[in-house]
Protein backbone atom coordinates (compact mmCIF):
# COMPACT_ATOMS: atom_id res chain seq x y z
CA UNK A 1 0.00 0.00 0.00
CA UNK A 2 2.79 2.36 0.73
CA UNK A 3 6.01 2.85 -1.03
CA UNK A 4 7.33 5.43 1.32
CA UNK A 5 8.48 3.46 4.27
CA UNK A 6 10.85 1.17 2.51
CA UNK A 7 14.45 1.64 1.65
CA UNK A 8 14.68 2.00 -2.07
CA UNK A 9 16.11 -1.21 -3.31
CA UNK A 10 16.13 -2.92 -6.62
CA UNK A 11 14.18 -1.22 -9.30
CA UNK A 12 11.58 0.30 -7.06
CA UNK A 13 10.45 3.55 -8.49
CA UNK A 14 11.69 6.48 -6.44
CA UNK A 15 8.55 8.56 -6.65
CA UNK A 16 5.32 8.04 -4.82
CA UNK A 17 2.55 6.83 -7.03
CA UNK A 18 4.69 6.11 -10.04
CA UNK A 19 3.37 3.14 -11.89
CA UNK A 20 5.83 0.38 -12.44
CA UNK A 21 6.01 -1.62 -15.62
CA UNK A 22 4.34 -4.97 -16.04
CA UNK A 23 5.99 -8.01 -14.56
CA UNK A 24 8.53 -9.56 -16.84
CA UNK A 25 8.63 -13.33 -16.92
CA UNK A 26 11.70 -14.72 -15.22
CA UNK A 27 13.36 -17.36 -17.36
CA UNK A 28 14.05 -20.66 -15.63
CA UNK A 29 17.45 -20.81 -14.01
CA UNK A 30 17.72 -17.04 -13.85
CA UNK A 31 19.02 -15.28 -10.75
CA UNK A 32 16.49 -14.76 -7.96
CA UNK A 33 14.04 -12.00 -8.67
CA UNK A 34 14.45 -8.63 -7.00
CA UNK A 35 12.00 -7.41 -4.39
CA UNK A 36 9.72 -5.70 -6.88
CA UNK A 37 9.49 -8.80 -8.97
CA UNK A 38 8.62 -10.84 -5.87
CA UNK A 39 5.89 -8.30 -5.14
CA UNK A 40 4.44 -8.52 -8.64
CA UNK A 41 4.53 -12.31 -8.64
CA UNK A 42 2.97 -12.37 -5.16
CA UNK A 43 0.11 -10.21 -6.39
CA UNK A 44 -0.27 -12.50 -9.38
CA UNK A 45 -0.66 -15.55 -7.11
CA UNK A 46 2.67 -17.24 -7.77
CA UNK A 47 3.15 -19.62 -4.82
CA UNK A 48 6.90 -19.38 -5.07
CA UNK A 49 6.60 -15.65 -4.40
CA UNK A 50 5.04 -16.39 -0.99
CA UNK A 51 8.06 -18.51 -0.10
CA UNK A 52 10.41 -15.79 -1.31
CA UNK A 53 8.50 -13.15 0.61
CA UNK A 54 8.76 -15.29 3.71
CA UNK A 55 12.50 -15.76 3.23
CA UNK A 56 13.06 -12.05 2.87
CA UNK A 57 10.57 -10.47 5.27
CA UNK A 58 9.37 -13.00 7.85
CA UNK A 59 12.10 -11.89 10.28
CA UNK A 60 11.03 -8.27 9.88
CA UNK A 61 7.40 -9.13 10.53
CA UNK A 62 8.27 -11.44 13.39
CA UNK A 63 10.50 -8.76 14.90
CA UNK A 64 7.46 -6.45 15.07
CA UNK A 65 5.35 -9.18 16.62
CA UNK A 66 8.01 -9.96 19.20
CA UNK A 67 8.40 -6.28 20.00
CA UNK A 68 4.67 -6.11 20.75
CA UNK A 69 4.17 -9.39 22.61
CA UNK A 70 7.57 -10.79 23.49
CA UNK A 71 8.76 -14.09 22.07
CA UNK A 72 6.17 -16.83 22.28
CA UNK A 73 2.84 -18.06 20.96
CA UNK A 74 1.19 -14.64 20.57
CA UNK A 75 4.03 -13.30 18.44
CA UNK A 76 4.14 -16.49 16.41
CA UNK A 77 0.39 -16.31 15.79
CA UNK A 78 0.72 -12.72 14.62
CA UNK A 79 3.49 -13.61 12.17
CA UNK A 80 1.64 -16.62 10.87
CA UNK A 81 -1.61 -14.74 10.45
CA UNK A 82 0.18 -11.89 8.73
CA UNK A 83 1.46 -14.15 5.97
CA UNK A 84 -1.75 -16.17 5.70
CA UNK A 85 -3.88 -13.02 5.46
CA UNK A 86 -1.45 -11.39 3.06
CA UNK A 87 -1.62 -14.40 0.77
CA UNK A 88 -5.36 -14.94 0.90
CA UNK A 89 -5.91 -11.18 0.63
CA UNK A 90 -3.29 -10.62 -2.06
CA UNK A 91 -5.89 -9.12 -4.34
CA UNK A 92 -5.69 -6.12 -2.03
CA UNK A 93 -2.00 -5.66 -2.69
CA UNK A 94 -1.20 -3.26 -5.52
CA UNK A 95 2.45 -3.46 -6.53
CA UNK A 96 2.21 -0.03 -8.13
CA UNK A 97 1.25 1.45 -4.75
CA UNK A 98 4.28 0.31 -2.82
CA UNK A 99 6.69 -2.51 -2.08
CA UNK A 100 5.47 -5.78 -0.64
CA UNK A 101 7.37 -5.54 2.69
CA UNK A 102 5.61 -2.26 3.50
CA UNK A 103 2.28 -3.87 2.77
CA UNK A 104 3.18 -6.83 4.99
CA UNK A 105 4.05 -4.35 7.76
CA UNK A 106 0.57 -2.85 7.44
CA UNK A 107 -1.04 -6.30 7.62
CA UNK A 108 1.07 -7.06 10.69
CA UNK A 109 -0.17 -3.87 12.39
CA UNK A 110 -3.72 -5.11 11.94
CA UNK A 111 -2.85 -8.47 13.44
CA UNK A 112 -1.22 -6.82 16.45
CA UNK A 113 -4.24 -4.58 16.99
CA UNK A 114 -6.57 -7.57 16.56
CA UNK A 115 -4.59 -9.46 19.19
CA UNK A 116 -4.96 -6.57 21.62
CA UNK A 117 -8.68 -6.55 20.95
CA UNK A 118 -8.90 -10.28 21.52
CA UNK A 119 -7.06 -9.95 24.82
CA UNK A 120 -9.36 -7.14 25.84
CA UNK A 121 -12.38 -9.36 25.16
CA UNK A 122 -10.78 -12.12 27.23
CA UNK A 123 -9.98 -9.69 30.02
CA UNK A 124 -13.58 -8.54 30.17
CA UNK A 125 -14.85 -12.10 30.10
CA UNK A 126 -12.46 -13.05 32.91
CA UNK A 127 -13.48 -10.09 35.01
CA UNK A 128 -17.14 -10.80 34.44
CA UNK A 129 -16.52 -14.37 35.57
CA UNK A 130 -14.75 -13.19 38.72
CA UNK A 131 -17.56 -10.84 39.55
CA UNK A 132 -20.14 -13.51 38.93
CA UNK A 133 -18.25 -16.01 41.05
CA UNK A 134 -18.26 -13.56 43.91
CA UNK A 135 -21.96 -12.87 43.40
CA UNK A 136 -21.30 -9.18 43.65
CA UNK A 137 -23.56 -6.64 42.09
CA UNK A 138 -21.95 -5.28 38.98
CA UNK A 139 -22.11 -1.94 37.34
CA UNK A 140 -23.10 -3.55 34.08
CA UNK A 141 -20.87 -4.95 31.35
CA UNK A 142 -17.13 -4.50 31.67
CA UNK A 143 -15.90 -1.48 29.76
CA UNK A 144 -14.22 -1.96 26.42
CA UNK A 145 -10.69 -0.61 26.32
CA UNK A 146 -11.46 2.30 24.03
CA UNK A 147 -7.91 2.76 22.78
CA UNK A 148 -7.76 -0.88 21.70
CA UNK A 149 -10.99 -0.59 19.76
CA UNK A 150 -10.01 2.76 18.26
CA UNK A 151 -6.72 1.33 16.97
CA UNK A 152 -8.56 -1.34 15.03
CA UNK A 153 -10.93 1.30 13.68
CA UNK A 154 -8.22 3.73 12.57
CA UNK A 155 -5.95 1.10 11.02
CA UNK A 156 -8.95 0.14 8.92
CA UNK A 157 -9.37 3.76 7.90
CA UNK A 158 -5.71 3.97 6.88
CA UNK A 159 -6.34 1.05 4.51
CA UNK A 160 -8.84 3.19 2.69
CA UNK A 161 -6.39 5.96 1.96
CA UNK A 162 -4.82 6.15 -1.47
CA UNK A 163 -1.26 7.17 -2.21
CA UNK A 164 0.48 9.36 -1.51
CA UNK A 165 -1.74 10.17 1.53
CA UNK A 166 -1.25 6.82 3.14
CA UNK A 167 2.51 6.77 2.81
CA UNK A 168 2.78 10.31 4.12
CA UNK A 169 0.73 9.70 7.24
CA UNK A 170 2.54 6.41 7.88
CA UNK A 171 5.87 8.22 7.78
CA UNK A 172 4.52 10.75 10.27
CA UNK A 173 2.92 8.16 12.59
CA UNK A 174 5.18 5.16 12.36
CA UNK A 175 8.56 6.52 11.31
CA UNK A 176 8.19 9.68 13.43
CA UNK A 177 9.30 11.97 10.60
CA UNK A 178 8.49 15.68 10.49
CA UNK A 179 6.68 17.06 7.49
CA UNK A 180 9.98 18.53 6.28
CA UNK A 181 11.65 15.14 6.49
CA UNK A 182 8.71 13.55 4.69
CA UNK A 183 9.00 16.13 1.95
CA UNK A 184 12.68 15.37 1.61
CA UNK A 185 12.11 11.63 1.63
CA UNK A 186 9.33 11.65 -0.93
CA UNK A 187 10.32 14.59 -3.09
CA UNK A 188 6.85 16.06 -2.62
CA UNK A 189 6.61 19.82 -1.97
CA UNK A 190 6.27 20.90 1.67
CA UNK A 191 2.86 22.42 1.09
CA UNK A 192 1.58 19.22 -0.48
CA UNK A 193 2.81 17.14 2.43
CA UNK A 194 1.23 19.53 4.94
CA UNK A 195 -2.11 19.54 3.22
CA UNK A 196 -2.20 15.75 2.89
CA UNK A 197 -1.37 15.43 6.59
CA UNK A 198 -4.11 17.88 7.48
CA UNK A 199 -6.75 16.18 5.35
CA UNK A 200 -5.85 12.73 6.65
CA UNK A 201 -5.93 13.85 10.29
CA UNK A 202 -9.34 15.42 9.72
CA UNK A 203 -10.56 12.22 8.16
CA UNK A 204 -9.30 10.15 11.10
CA UNK A 205 -10.81 12.68 13.52
CA UNK A 206 -14.19 12.32 11.84
CA UNK A 207 -13.95 8.55 11.90
CA UNK A 208 -13.15 8.54 15.62
CA UNK A 209 -15.87 11.02 16.45
CA UNK A 210 -18.49 9.12 14.50
CA UNK A 211 -17.51 5.53 15.27
CA UNK A 212 -14.87 5.69 17.99
CA UNK A 213 -15.22 3.50 21.04
CA UNK A 214 -14.43 6.24 23.52
CA UNK A 215 -17.65 8.09 22.79
CA UNK A 216 -19.81 5.02 22.68
CA UNK A 217 -18.41 2.92 25.47
Amino acid sequence: MTGLLEPRTGRWSPRVGDVTTQAEPVPPGAAEPDDDEVGRRFAAGDEQALAWAYERWAARVHGMAVRAFGPGPDAEDVTQQTFVSAWTGRAGYRPDQGPLPAWLTGVCRHKIADTWAKRDRQRRAAEAAIIEAQARPTGGPQPVDAAVADRVLLLGELDRLGQPQRGIIELAFFADLTHAQISERTGLPLGTVKSHIRRTLERLRDRLEVDGAALHA
Partner: peptide
Protein backbone atom coordinates in the same frame (compact mmCIF):
# COMPACT_ATOMS: atom_id res chain seq x y z
CA UNK B 1 -6.07 9.85 16.29
CA UNK B 2 -2.37 10.63 16.56
CA UNK B 3 -2.29 9.28 20.09
CA UNK B 4 -4.27 6.19 19.23
CA UNK B 5 -1.85 5.13 16.50
CA UNK B 6 1.58 6.41 17.46
CA UNK B 7 2.40 3.68 19.94
CA UNK B 8 5.80 2.01 19.78
CA UNK B 9 4.31 -1.40 19.07
CA UNK B 10 2.96 -0.17 15.74
CA UNK B 11 6.07 1.76 14.70
CA UNK B 12 8.19 0.71 11.77
CA UNK B 13 9.90 -2.63 12.29
Amino acid sequence: AVDVLTVPELAEP
